[in-house]
Write a protein that binds this DNA or RNA. Structure first.
Lengths: 346, 346
DNA sequence: CTGAAAGCGCTTACAG
DNA sequence: CTGAAAGCGCTTACAG
């Protein structure tokens, strides 16, 4: 029907103003009636403006509003990894679900920075990401950042953002939403104790980030009671026959594994020695597996409230955007304990 | 450390221009070097500009670029239903996965219109959605729209968009990416015939949309050969004992169900009569289930290339954005046939 | 090869 | 209660 689809010119604020017989300032006041407005519009003028908007099918140009300093109601979501990864299928899904719910409730759109995922080299929010973020009012950062200086850098621009996962830095006070690993692991220790375990071992990854510190802290928090607690950090691959032998010899009856890889590696060793979990030794997993392809359900483990974390991240981000001077927002959400079959009473 | 976090003013184009001793036009030319540029910059000036950008840590303001008529590289994704629904967990996921992949490859960010999901009444892209779309260069529309006039309306604004799923309208020629249901169902009929079936029944939903028409067309396409084909449309709830009785009495040996609900309802009836699938009668499902909680795998069925559809939607949308005058893009992607256990040879 | 200027569509002090 | 004007940070003809 229409041969050449040239973009029909949308009605602008001045079109409306002209039709209503007022200035653009009045139209602007009508469409965004804030409390502390410097401009107030008469009932009569407002009516005419609204009618004009109706007739013209006027809708404000968000981009222009944005440039002129108005609000965008767009929240950026930056992931260091691919947002919808096909391999570890659903790992980010719960977070996104929560983020979407929060965004929906607060009337925010979500801008996913998918473009920057394709840059060569280690994924970075600079230089492209940061500039692209300008479209959004703030951002939620997801995934493990390759470089902490970037966070510092982004923080220094004054752009509001909230990370999912605790981020601690000496020179920048960040806002984050994290799982309360400390309390959760501490609780696991209690449960083990109640089950009769006295010698517990914590096995974690060599790389110690904030969340690893939190888990370890929760573990060691119970030190000094009637329990013997030992922490060891090594790659999951290093869990071999010797290691297992030593572990049992030391009298440990339960191992808290910081990652799922460690749990799986340990079970494999036990099986190789013709042992069983929890027959030979008990295991509690202190992390959610990256992909749920594994038979997760039978593991006694900690569950991370991912959806809630996503939702809260949105709330806190909005709060930061609306009240920039309140200082960083640090929030912690309780984990769940999922009873499986890998922890037994002794 | 910093007590009040006031937004640090980012370096602007004029800052760079001033430092480099050129005009902003030159800076603009440097950062966006298009082929048919009206402005060309000397090597010397360019070098100074780049240095200045470096020193100042300059990154162009996307919003301003956008207002001034530049490109945004943002693709909107509008869903009539919640984008990450928790109940029908993964239905949109594969589409989004494909969309993300396409966006990544083409250097586009993704803007999810989550805010409009919360409006009262039937979900609508107007008035809020449409205005919000202005931030994006174009949009992908996902899900079943409640009101086709909206599509017409959006189309009339000249805003480029691509729907996932065929959309046919008398007064607007739309761009879409769809599954080739016609060919797929036609193929299913062939397979049934090869398995010895002669009387086939097609059972579909009463509401006939484009995709339903396509399936039916594919079915009836094989009319006139040695097969007896019958189409019936009724709510899945109406598949009762009488219906099943009549169906068998008519000599049908296989039923092609347009929705999963129909397939499940039919199986339930058969079971109620102490029959089995495919013992009593064969079933081929002509659609993917909305949620994959069901035991999908055993069903003989058609599979929809959702990821590919999402990816192609992005490509075609970009193509439309870059070449607005080329007319609508209609694309169809082949479905897969998944052999299950509900179709048997006779 | 480069600059001055208009304009994109808004918002927001500043004056009436 | 309302208008005229500046400005947000860019891009793009139009002149040199």
């Amino acid at each position: 029907m229409t041969k050449s689809l040239k973009r029909v010119k949308r009605a602008t604020q001045s079109d409306v103003a002209a039709l209503a017989g007022v200035s653009t300032a009045v139209v602007s006041a009508v469409i965004s009636s804030k409390p502390g407005k410097t401009i107030r519009v008469g009932k009569d003028a407002e009516k005419r403006v609204r009618e004009a908007m109706e007739t013209l099918g006027y809708a404000p140009n968000v981009v222009a509003q944005s440039l002129a300093g108005g609000k965008r109601n767009i929240i950026g979501v930056f992931t260091y990894e691919a947002i919808f990864p096909s391999d570890s299928e659903n790992f980010f899904y719960p977070f996104l679900l929560g983020i979407e719910r929060g965004a929906m409730q607060l009337g925010q759109d979500l801008l996913l920075f998918t473009s920057s995922s394709f840059e060569r080299g280690p994924r970075s929010i600079f230089p492209n990401g940061a500039s692209r973020m300008g479209v959004a009012d703030g951002a939620i950062l997801l995934g493990e950042e390759p470089d902490k200086r970037e966070l510092k850098q982004l923080h220094d621009t004054g752009f509001p953002f909230v990370t999912i996962g605790r981020r601690d830095m000496p020179d920048a006070d960040l806002s984050w939403v994290a799982a309360d690993y400390t309390a959760a692991v501490s609780d696991v220790v209690d449960r083990c104790a109640r089950y009769g375990h006295r010698k517990l071992k914590f096995v974690g990854a060599p790389q110690v980030r904030e969340q690893n510190m939190d888990r370890e802290a929760g573990f060691l928090q119970k030190q000094g009671s009637s329990l013997t607690l030992a922490v060891e950090r090594l790659p999951a691959e290093d869990i071999d026959a010797d290691w297992l032998h030593k572990c049992l010899e030391d009298g440990n009856t339960v191992v808290l594994t910081e990652t799922f890889k460690h749990a799986v590696a340990l079970e494999r060793q036990v099986a190789a020695q013709n042992g069983t979990i929890p027959g030979t030794i008990s295991i509690v997993a202190l992390a959610a597996p990256l992909n749920r392809s594994a038979d997760v359900d039978r593991w006694t483990r900690i569950s991370v409230p991912r959806e809630e974390m996503g939702e809260l991240a949105v709330r806190n981000l909005i709060s930061r955007i609306r009240t920039p001077d309140q200082g960083p927002l640090k929030a912690t959400l309780p984990c769940g304990f999922v009873p499986g079959t890998t922890l037994r009473k002794i």
